[in-house]
Amino acid sequence: MSAFWELAGMFVSAFTSATLLPGSSEAVLAGIVALGTASATSAVIVATLGNTVGSVVNWAMGLFAARFRHHRRFPLTPEQYERYAAIYAKWGVWSLLLSWTPVIGDPLTVVAGVMRTPLWIVVPLVMLAKGARYVAVAGVVVML
């Protein structure tokens, strides 16, 4: 498989992993780095971009769906929304540095949209957080 297709798959995996859909982009990144068919740097950059774009989708969902937050099809339950909104209210935009974490990270980006946080603030914070996670994963694989 060519590096292009592996990196394209990395982007798709990272994108879907950042949305409220399940995914495991770290495993895909680790595989690409371990196989060495694409450079670790390229894989980290593509994973970071894909995951950040997925978070922007979450932010947009929150932005445009805020008025429907009590609807049964809203991506967060009322309890989840209240918990993430409390974290967001306490820590503000800096809570987006937790966007890399499992379980709470992706909903925080939805809440950022609901709270109407400007995209120019969301993108750098999310990209920094998610990029750091991918650098750490790639670093561990390279050291092994």
Score class of each variant (00 low, 15 high):
Ser17Met: 05
Ser17Arg: 00
Pro22Asn: 10
Pro22Arg: 12
Ser24Tyr: 03
Ser24Leu: 05
Ala27Gln: 04
Ala27Arg: 00
Ala27Val: 12
Ala27Trp: 00
Val28Leu: 15
Val28Thr: 11
Gly31Phe: 06
Gly31Asn: 12
Ala34Lys: 05
Leu35Val: 07
Gly36His: 10
Ala38Glu: 13
Ala40Asp: 00
Ala43His: 05
Ala43Asp: 15
Ala43Cys: 11
Ala43Thr: 12
Val44Asp: 04
Val44Glu: 05
Val46Gln: 03
Ala47Cys: 10
Ala47Pro: 08
Gly50Cys: 09
Gly50Phe: 12
Asn51Ala: 00
Val53Met: 00
Gly54Asp: 02
Ser55Glu: 00
Val56Cys: 13
Val57Leu: 08
Asn58Pro: 01
Trp59Met: 04
Ala60Ser: 14
Ala60Asn: 06
Met61Lys: 03
Met61Cys: 13
Leu63Gly: 13
Leu63Asn: 11
Phe64Tyr: 10
Phe64Asn: 08
Ala66Asn: 10
Ala66Tyr: 07
Arg67Thr: 13
Arg67Met: 08
Arg67Gln: 14
Phe68Gly: 08
His71Tyr: 08
His71Met: 06
Arg72Cys: 14
Arg72Gly: 06
Phe74Arg: 07
Pro75Leu: 13
Pro75Lys: 08
Thr77Val: 15
Pro78Trp: 03
Glu79His: 04
Glu82Tyr: 02
Glu82Trp: 02
Ala85Glu: 07
Ala86Lys: 01
Ala86Arg: 03
Tyr88His: 09
